[in-house]
Write a protein that binds this DNA or RNA. Sequence first.
DNA 1: CACAATTACGAGGGTCGTAAAAATG
DNA 2: CATTTTTACGACCCTCGTAATTGTG
Lengths: 283, 283
Amino acid sequence: MFELAQLEQLLAFAKHKTLSKAAEEMHLSQPALTRSMQRLEEDIGVPLFERKKNKLSLNENGKLAVEFAEKIIFDVHTMPERLREFDRTRRTIYIGSCAPAPMWKLSHELSELYPELALSTDLKGTEEITRGFDIGKYDIIIMPEPTDKTEFVCFNYMTEHLMLSLPPAHPLAMYKEVSFNDINGETMLLFSDIGFWHDICAAKMPDTEFIIQSERDTFRSLVKLSALPSFTSDIVTDQVEEHRIIVPISDKEANPTFYIWIHKSKKSKFSRLCEALKDRISP
Amino acid sequence: MFELAQLEQLLAFAKHKTLSKAAEEMHLSQPALTRSMQRLEEDIGVPLFERKKNKLSLNENGKLAVEFAEKIIFDVHTMPERLREFDRTRRTIYIGSCAPAPMWKLSHELSELYPELALSTDLKGTEEITRGFDIGKYDIIIMPEPTDKTEFVCFNYMTEHLMLSLPPAHPLAMYKEVSFNDINGETMLLFSDIGFWHDICAAKMPDTEFIIQSERDTFRSLVKLSALPSFTSDIVTDQVEEHRIIVPISDKEANPTFYIWIHKSKKSKFSRLCEALKDRISP
DNA sequence: CACAATTACGAGGGTCGTAAAAATG
DNA sequence: CATTTTTACGACCCTCGTAATTGTG
C-alpha cells in the first residue's frame, strides 16, 4: 500500500512539473522524491510517468492518479479539522440569548451544573437568535416568549423589570412609574450589548436619541457624571447607582418573561439542567 | 500527519472491539497497535478512545473518526483498482462486431496499425453491439448498416456474400442460385459464433431446424461427413470444402455490407485507422 | 488465571541525504 | 555548464516484537 506522503508528493509534482521544485516544497531531496515516485508506481502497479532522459512528466494514468490523490488528500486534511471541531462543540455549551440578565443567570447555573464544559454565549436580537437556533449554532436559547413547537422543550425561566434611572433633578423623577411613551423624545444613555432591548427601544421610543456606549465601565461613568436618563432593571443589583432615582416602567414590553428553549434531541445532553428546571416547564 | 495503516487499524479495532483481535487481523502485536492508536490520537489532536483499566472503546470522536476513515480507506483502495482498469483500457482496443468475417479482417489490420495495443473482440447480435457501443464498452463496432448520427464517424468497410454449401447429391445443388425461402424447412448445420447471422437465419428461415455446433473443428468435420447443407461465404476462403457444391444466395440479407462505427471523440486515438479508411468514409 | 491494555527496551528495516553519473538544451 | 533525473551507499530514525507490568472478571 502506498503512503499519504507519496500522494502529496505526486500533487506537488503535478503542481511544479519538476521533481526538484516539488522536492523543495516537500522539504525533501530530489533523489528521495525520485525513489518515492518510483515506489508509488510499483505500489499502484501502473506507470504514472513518461520518462525522457532528463524530463519527467505525467502520462494519462498519472493525470487520473492526481485527481484521485487530490480527493484523498483533501479528505485526509479535513478529517482532523472536522474532528477537532466536533470535539470542541462536544465540550462546549453554546447559548444564544436575547437579553443579558437571563444569560448571566443561566451561565452561572450551567457552569455549576456542568463544570467540565465550556460556555459560549451570544447576545443578539430575537430574530438572529432563532435563526442560529434553527441552524444548530446554539444548544440553548433564551427568548422573551415561549414556544409550542413540539420539537422543542421550553421552560419559563425568569421575569425582568426594566426601570428608568434618572438624576434627581429630572422632571420624570417625581413619577411613581412611567411608560415608554413618557420617555419618547428624551436623549438617553444606552449600553450597546443588550440584545432584543435594542428592538424594544427602537419600536417603543422612535423619537428618542440614544447615546450608545459599548464599554461597560465607560457607560457606568457616563451614567454617574451626566444628567441623562438611562435604563436599569431589578436584576442589575450589583450596579451602584448613587444619586439616581429609579422609576419602574409600566409597559408590558418592559417586564418580559424569558423562556429557555432546548431541542428535544439535546435533552439527554442537558439532562441535569432539565431536571433542575422541571417545575418550570412551559406550557 | 497520520498514516493510512493507522486508519485501517482504527477500522479493525472498530470491527473487533478489542486491540488483541484487531492486532491479529493486522498481523501486528498488541503493543504495536496500542502505540499506533496513541499516535493517531496525538496526530489528530483529539481523544478517540475511552480508556478503562483493561478496556478500550471508541468515544464519540472515535466513532466519527471511523466514519471518516472508512471513506478514506475506501477511496484509497479504489484508486489503484480504477487506475489499473484505466491503464488496461488504454492499452486495448475493444471491438464489437455483428459478424465474424469483417471482425477477422479488422483485427488483422488493427494489429498491424497498432502493434503496441491489445485487441479485445466481441461477437454479438446488432442490438447488443449497439448497446455496448452506447455505454462505451466498445471503441469500434462493425454493423451491417451505416449510421448518420453526427457523433459517430462511419466507414464502408466490406461486403460479404453468404453461400450455401451442399453435398453434390442435394436437390438444391443443381441451382445457379437459391433464396432463403428455398432453404426454409431444411435441416442445416450451423456454427454458433456468427453474430447477427443468427438473427437473419431465425427471421428468414423460421421453419429450418439448425444443428448448432460451437467447436469449429467439430463443425468442419460434421460438414465433411454429413449430407446436410451448411453456410459458407466468399470471405471464408481458407475453408477447404471438397466434394461440396457452393451456391450463392440471392436475398439482399445474404449479401450485407459492413460498416465501421467509431465515436468522433475517439478519432484521435484511432487516427491511423481513420487515415487508412479515409476513402471509404460513409456519410 | 486467562485476557486486555500499557510500558520498556533492543533489533531491524526502510527512507533519507550525500555523492556521483548520465543526459539535455 | 546549469539543470534534471537516476543510481549507489551509508546513516539514522521509527516502528516493530519480546518481555514484563498492571488490572479485571
